[in-house]
Design a protein around this nucleic acid. Sequence first.
DNA 1: GAGTCGCCTTGATCGAGATCAAGGTTTTGC
DNA 2: GCAAAACCTTGATCTCGATCAAGGCGACTC
Lengths: 237, 237
Amino acid sequence: MTARQDVQQADVPAICKSCEARQDGLCGAFNARQLAVLAKASSRHEVPAGTELPDDGTYSNLLSGVVKLTRNLSDGRQQIVGFHFAPDFLGRPFEAKKRIRAEALTNVALCSFPKAIIDRMANEMPELGRLLLKHTLNELDEARDWMAALGRKTASEKVASFLLMVARNTDPAHHPASPISFDLPLTRTDIADFLGLTIETVSRELSRLRSDGTIRIVNKRQISLASMAQLEERCGD
Amino acid sequence: MTARQDVQQADVPAICKSCEARQDGLCGAFNARQLAVLAKASSRHEVPAGTELPDDGTYSNLLSGVVKLTRNLSDGRQQIVGFHFAPDFLGRPFEAKKRIRAEALTNVALCSFPKAIIDRMANEMPELGRLLLKHTLNELDEARDWMAALGRKTASEKVASFLLMVARNTDPAHHPASPISFDLPLTRTDIADFLGLTIETVSRELSRLRSDGTIRIVNKRQISLASMAQLEERCGD
DNA sequence: GAGTCGCCTTGATCGAGATCAAGGTTTTGC
DNA sequence: GCAAAACCTTGATCTCGATCAAGGCGACTC
């Protein structure tokens, strides 16, 4: 990986070192000239956990950390409607009708680009538009999966599905039959707000999965699984 | 409107008469030459209620009728994850990971185009790509609104929100304070599968809204409202 | 190291919505 | 027009997950 980073640095101008090294987010779609333009306009940010990410019209590659998207009802009830894990691409090309807040769940590193530059490039570069569309369609698929979970799964199926989602995002290439452990980047309140449950129910279902032997709870935030396949059986789909 | 239709027919070659007259779906984005190409490749279909719309790689303008999108869990539990009302644009540019079925709820009229033609045009026409992206982002916003409803609203808020959604799609320009009546294009089972409830609960909540005086139930499928504003108060958001 | 605060767990009880059950109404087919 | 089927409503009861309540466990502060 260090070798690859060196090659990248020799081949193309820097956007920001982390972006470039990992070809994060959209960066893989650009040629050397475009990367040079982006490099000048980009800026790197470190954002501490708990910060709201303002919708200031910029686009960003999420280099590390986890971001939650929330929708609130008028009386304060909250629903988490999505997560972004590194190396997702953040930002919205057009205005949203309803307000969705984005907040850093963990410390987050971003590489940001002004909207105008990306939009201009998208106009002269159909490949970029297709990539944005593909990203958005994936988000739509995920949202619909969670609609099915919210509407039709039991509490324990919801919790199992959630753990599986985090595990998959932690290590997308992980073999389903082998053990894995990972940190939950969320409080019980966040998990509840995502699954449409209360914190007590989340806690009880986690305890039940532990006494089942399906999961081990190391440290409140750290979970380890004998296998993802075992959880998949409890997901209902 | 008839006047406008005449102008359109004089200006540009026909895609199919209905598309053209209403500038449905994506047709408003094309110039005369492109419309001519599309016209040759397009075909009009009438699909009876209850038919599954196969994901055959074509794109379609939905000229009339309502389409539901469903996700099923392994044991048959069903969640409706979205609707398409005329004049939506149907079709998916890339492969979906999980299977979502599309089914006509009412009789449906479609104007279909081969995928290859649209994809080629999207490559040489950034405007079209942006339009597709915009459509997809709207779908994403809607999906997230329903996530919030599924996760955090009570049964009566869900039913009120649903009625409001149908009312708005029936007549998008309707004044919120004036009376409106519309047909529900769904059975109670479909409503329940959309709201994550049982048919009995849907039926009871509709009865309650009727005895409240918020709605009138004319004919099981036909609802009339004194005002949309009254329902909005019961939506929770 | 005592006290406070934030977060989590567990138990007891409650209630919204599910399930079970019966009957009514509309549609369909002959 | 009648019978059957599909769909809808309403009532009785049950259950899953919410709510209420108490206490545990770390992480800070002083």
